[in-house]
């Protein structure tokens, strides 16, 4: 069986890369205001925590797609194969068995 070459996620990389640049530029252009609110403490602790979640999603997606575009991708591991086998076994057992119902 021949392997079909996977399409590189260039568009995704550019999208998330663009969003990442916008986020970082905004942060540094407005850094004084950001620091003023983010270091107030108390309930304002939610601001840095929410921000790192947002940045890790946007910038993390950009970084992940970047490695794919430059051709550095994971090999299929033995553990992945084992996991897929377990899933297909589970699917097989989940399927309802045909039953013969006799009305007496």
């Amino acid at each position: 069986m021949t392997q079909v070459p996977k399409k590189k996620p260039t568009a995704k990389m550019l999208l998330f890369g663009g969003l990442s640049v916008i986020l970082y530029t905004t942060l540094f252009l407005k850094s004084e205001t950001v620091m003023q609110f983010f270091t107030r403490g108390g309930i304002y602790a939610a601001l840095p925590i929410a921000t790192v979640f947002l940045f890790s999603y946007i910038h993390g997606s950009f970084a992940g797609n970047f490695w794919s575009v430059v051709g550095i991708e994971a090999q299929k591991t033995r553990l992945q194969e084992k996991m897929e086998q377990q899933k297909s076994r589970a699917r097989r057992t989940e399927r309802p068995r045909p039953r013969l119902r006799a009305h007496t």
């Binding site: 540094f28 950001v34 108390g42 602790a45 840095p48 790192v52 940045f55 910038h59 992940g64 490695w67």
Partner: peptide, 26 residues
């Protein structure tokens, strides 16, 4: 959350390091 409660997180430093580390960790 604890450090943020005391207002000691410098989000600029955090996000610059994060920018590099998200490439590295993947």
């Amino acid at each position: 959350i604890n450090w943020g409660f005391h207002g000691l997180i410098d989000i600029r430093l955090t996000l610059i390091i994060l920018a590099g580390s998200l490439f590295g960790v993947q």
